[in-house]
Amino acid sequence: MNKYISTGLTLLVLVISINAQGFKVKAKGSQTFNFEDKGGRNQISFYSKTPLEDITGTVNAISGWATFDVTDFVKTLKGKIIVKVASMNTGIELRNNHMKSVNWLDEKKFPEISYEFNSAESVKQIADNKLSFKVRGKFTLHGVSKDVEADGEATYLDENEQTQKRAPGDLLGIRSNFKIKLSDFDIDNSIIGSKVSEVIEVSVNIVGSNK
């Protein structure tokens, strides 16, 4: 009888450990990372490819958070990233003004763009402190929310002398890429014509601290 119980328990532990995918770092338990970066190094860039001109823009006014259990990233991940439309820059002042105008992103009415996520899937362990994953969440742009799936990669750095130069506490670096369709968010691209692509590629490079 005892044999069956011990075998059952071993199997249960095995199943739990297979399902629980997370970082193998010094930190334990639930951790919350804040992505507000006063140094302005956190960045989200967007890219539009058209026959006329390829446009790359950046956003630096980023805030938000992500929380997860270090040992079970898949089931416990949730968070929100918020960017200010006012900080979007394409390198041409006139184009920035057009982009933020009523005909496009309407910055005065919709000053923020956000992405709220609450689970990860297809997690692969790249290194002890690095995971790749897919995340699904609500992307809100121009007052419209849609489900958007993103590819992501997270790197966990335990606090050390080098990380302290950036920020106190452990650091979490997130890289992510996804695409959005402007028409899904009620942005009429026909006004601009072929100057801007209907599909915009978004690339996220942000680092958060848990202190």
Binding site: Q43, T58, E93, L157, T163, V207
Partner: peptide, 18 residues
């Protein structure tokens, strides 16, 4: 009047900052 250059992050080498 402005152009983008790319810089690698010292702590996170996979990350490129524009």
């Amino acid at each position: 009047t402005q152009v983008l250059i790319e810089k690698k992050d010292d702590l996170f080498p996979d990350m490129v900052q524009k």
